[in-house]
Design a protein around this nucleic acid. Structure first.
Lengths: 163, 163
DNA sequence: ATGAATGCAAAGCGTTTGCATCTGG
DNA sequence: CCAGATGCAAACGCTTTGCATTCAT
């Protein structure tokens, strides 16, 4: 969401790619051109992306990539802890890149324009811990989605806001 | 979740059925034997049920019911505000009956035994309101799921707990 | 060279829909 | 009567899989 310089973005992607490569080697898996492109674009785009959207983007760099490969790579990313599958109720699974520094944010989805806004609230997280503890549970991960409408007359979050 | 006497359950179902019938009439829709059975079983079972599970149950009462009818009825229930579709990541949509008295609860899902526990925490709700307000949004509905593991050595929430 | 990854197309799965038939109001 | 509901099967959209080929190590 926050604006990000090209350098920052490149640094972030490079870091993520490095971590990913390491993990691949650890797991005895191979690094291929397709896999690398998919993962790199996934980290570069850095948004809740669907397999479909990712494939479309990746094909600009590697036209002959098939969707099976995208799905397989996405699954791999999830298994290796680099992505989290999300379902926002629009019929397709979206994948959320996990940055080490922002391990677990929540979402507010505008019911008017479907824009997805990320947020993080410490008070909320504390309360959740407390709730789980009271029930004798320890939270592993959470999924918090607020479906809300904008209160400003003309919803400011229209998709045509240059991304 | 809470134990419920047969009378209570019957009363609850009757009330829900009445409300549903009213809504049907208001909307100029018809009450049919199939529809009634599906809706009644849905309210009676009163859990996060999948179309599949509901169909199986309903067929004990009306064997010739097709799954299209179940899906259509579930959709109707959602449209009319009697059910909320939920996705817990197991590949199929589950439907959560809405009781007037418990309009919007949240869920804790045991990662060990997949048991789904409902809860409701006012402090949590208040905080959520505040978060949305700060962002200039008004929450329409929320989806909060805590995936957590039980801290008691032998997870007490095993599916074989008589339902 | 050898096990893993790819690309394609086919299959799979949950869900929706077209259509002829039936039914409630 | 006639709009709406049903049941069946076919269609659907997203995702997964089988298999022959290619590629990284």
């Amino acid at each position: 969401m926050a604006e990000q310089s090209l350098e920052e973005r490149e640094a972030r992607v490079a870091e993520a790619m490095e971590a990913f490569s390491e993990r691949l080697q650890e797991a005895g898996l191979k690094s291929t051109k397709q896999r690398d492109v998919i993962v790199e674009r996934f980290f570069w785009l850095d948004k809740h992306i669907s397999a479909d959207e990712l494939l479309e983007d990746v094909r600009e760099h590697q036209p002959r990539i098939g969707y099976a490969t995208v799905y397989r790579t996405l699954k791999l990313l999830v298994e290796q802890g680099f992505a989290l599958p999300k379902d926002f109720g629009d019929g397709q699974t979206r994948y959320d890149p996990i940055h080490n520094q922002d391990p677990q944010h929540d979402h507010l989805i505008c019911v008017d324009c479907r824009k997805i806004i990320e947020f993080n609230d410490d008070g909320l997280n504390e309360r959740i811990q407390a709730i789980a503890e009271k029930m004798q549970y320890q939270v592993r991960r959470k999924k918090i989605e607020l479906y809300a409408e904008c209160q400003i007359p003309a919803c400011p979050n229209h998709p045509d806001q240059s991304a």
